[in-house]
């Protein structure tokens, strides 16, 4: 049984994540929406840290809070003088229905399924792997997923070159 601290922290992070995600979508002002996005990313980093994913939590803060949100805010300021309508697309009624149905179906599936859960008393080697998950993750990426790792490097290179080629002055 998890202790009270963990419960309180989890539900606080849960509430912050959901509330700020709703703000991201509901806020008409793009700049505020971007700020709410940063809060969402930080709360998700907290959720990762709670699940023994320290490296991912740090990477989330570095990449999303540090880089992605800066890019987004840059684009928001770049487009500040654009004529922009605050209305929604004509898809809005349909998307409410579709998203509502998807949410009901997925939550039904989550609470109906018999998950093969990890025993509360963790097996010894699982516990030792989780305790130093950062170094174990490095081993996993370099040993088991080295092909994916290299491919992702090529993908990043292609994305950077592509982005530069798109915005280059003719």
């Amino acid at each position: 049984m998890p202790n009270l601290y963990q419960e309180v922290i989890f539900w606080a992070l849960f509430a912050i994540t959901v509330f700020s995600a709703l703000l991201v979508v509901g806020q008409r002002d793009m700049f505020r929406s971007a700020l709410a996005l940063i809060v969402t990313f930080l709360a998700i980093a907290g959720i990762f840290a709670q699940m023994n994913a320290e490296f991912l939590a740090v990477a989330q803060v570095l990449i999303y809070v540090g880089a992605v949100s800066v890019l987004v805010i840059f684009a928001v300021m770049f487009t500040k003088d654009m004529p922009h309508s605050t209305r929604s697309t004509n898809l809005q009624p349909v998307s409410i229905v579709v998203v509502g149905l998807l949410f009901i179906a997925l939550s039904w599936a989550i609470f109906q399924s018999q998950w093969n859960e990890m025993p509360a008393e963790l097996p010894v080697f699982v516990e030792s792997t989780l305790v130093d998950s950062s170094s174990q993750l490095g081993t996993a990426i370099i040993r088991d997923y080295v092909m994916a790792f290299e491919t992702v490097g090529v993908l990043l290179l292609a994305a950077v070159v592509g982005a530069l080629a798109l915005v280059r002055d003719k």
Binding site: A53, F55, L56, A59, Q60, I63, Y64, A67, V68, L71, V72, F125, V126, S128, T129, L130, S133, Q136, L137, T139, A140, I141, R143, D144, Y145, A148, V152, L155, L156, A159, V160, G162, A163, L166
Partner: peptide
């Protein structure tokens, strides 16, 4: 035992692809 972290490794690749997606 490293396989316990498969999901985290997968998530890291998702983060990288998402970063590339935002830049592009």
């Amino acid at each position: 035992s490293v396989k316990v972290l498969d999901g985290q490794a997968f998530a890291i690749f998702v983060v990288v692809v998402a970063a590339a997606e935002v830049a592009l």
